[in-house]
Design a protein around this nucleic acid. Structure first.
Lengths: 237, 237
DNA sequence: CGCGTTCTTGACTGCTTTCAAAGATGGTGG
DNA sequence: CCACCATCTTTGAAAGCAGTCAAGAACGCG
């Protein structure tokens, strides 16, 4: 799913994603392009937004991975959702008072402000579609944590992440980047890093995935999908 | 379950909740009141919205409990979120194409259409606040399923549900209705009904809760809160 | 090359599930 | 008013998935 078309204007992953969510006009693409020229960078482990802290303006993740995090006093930690390039932080439409959770950078993350959108335009539609997808992925995460085994959680999450990255044009066939340690994976999936390790080995032994060096290959996407009844997320009927 | 205040205009739980989220004008209260005169009822186990099915219009839960549900082919089931009186289904502002999940009635549920709101008015603000709360509760549910033990999940969920029902004026002190079987609780909490049963007994033995006959009493709210580091959900700083 | 982080591995514990079946409970019709 | 049925709750024993603790191997970076 490369995002290079035959014609010149090659877009960044973030713009590629929004463009995939609604047919953006030239003016809207321009606005996004300009917004991206004014980025700020956050280093790994650093906070992008604090829980309950009103944040400046709605933003777009231009590059890098981040995570919404809930930490407990005893050290337990749960990553509530993973933020990928093209994802929005804070709704550009509805100005919310408070950030609902803390957001932490996983890799280097570059952010830019989300351009204001004409409510009737396609950019607004892309923003809305993005919010709708976020909601779907969140519900999926609940079902994953509530009812799937460790084995299934990993498979399901990898498929979902592959699908999300594809929207931003960041996958190549069955390959995608995966800049996360097994400990971070554990925090996403509600497991321990030891058990993630053992389960990944099982998946490797079965020839289903190839995970290493910060990237993942889904060797048998079909079989993986069957394991968890995975169906792509759709917004349109 | 009475929600009576000292002054004449007594509102339904649903209106009480929205009123608590933003200071509604008389006109807005009227609009809500009129909307409630035109309800439809859904019986337990029946579908309120189907997954991926475009639904008619944004609605308000006037009374009764419902749940967003994800079912698996092998019979596993996860309740993704519980809908209580005053909760909104579908965003009244942003018209979304598809329902992200199936919604099923737990008790008898009455629904009415959500009145259109002037984007600058307080009703719109209440709708936005409701959506923001939904988001917070969803993140909380993720953390609960991912990192809390069965014991903690039950405590945390009971506290959250008490808080939510209080917004709608449906609690009395530490009492609130709980029209759910242990099997449904298990489906919410990602456990088995057998284990929910055993864990509830433990909580009863410890004198922390009193659960029976469709209602719950949180006997030691303070201690329960400490068990799970519970802090009320806030929208304002 | 050396150090810190990440990945692996092993042994053991334990929370939660599974399977089965026996009590309660509540509503219904005779 | 009670028998009866369906549903819900409770209990027991056994199995299993995942967590804990600890230590060694591998990797990446300066």
């Amino acid at each position: 799913m490369n995002f290079r078309s035959s014609s010149p204007p090659i877009h960044s992953p973030a713009i590629t994603r929004l463009k995939a969510l609604a047919p953006l006009s030239e003016a809207e693409l321009d606005a996004l392009g300009k917004a991206e020229e004014n980025c700020q960078t956050v280093r790994p482990h650093h906070e992008i937004a604090g829980e309950g802290i009103a944040f400046a303006e709605p933003s777009v993740v231009v590059s890098g991975w981040a995570g919404r995090v809930r930490s407990f006093a005893d050290g337990r930690r749960q990553i509530l959702s993973v933020l990928l390039p093209g994802d929005l932080i804070g709704q550009p439409q509805v100005r919310q008072s408070l950030a609902p959770t803390m957001i932490v950078a996983i890799t280097d993350v570059t952010l830019c402000g989300a351009p204001e959108a004409d409510p009737a335009g396609n950019l607004a539609r892309a923003y809305a579609a993005s919010a709708a997808l976020d909601e779907s992925y969140l519900y999926r995460h609940v079902a994953r944590l509530g009812r799937l085994s460790a084995y299934e959680r990993i498979v399901d999450w990898l498929l979902e992440t592959h699908e999300r990255l594809t929207l931003a044009g960041l996958t190549k066939e069955d390959w995608h980047p995966l800049p996360m340690t097994q400990e971070l994976l554990a925090d996403v999936l509600g497991l321990t890093s030891v058990h993630v390790n053992r389960t990944l080995q099982m998946l490797r032994r079965e020839g289903l995935i190839d995970l290493r060096g910060g990237s993942a290959v889904l060797l048998q996407k079909q079989r993986l999908s069957e394991i968890v009844e995975y169906r792509p997320t759709r917004l349109q009927p």
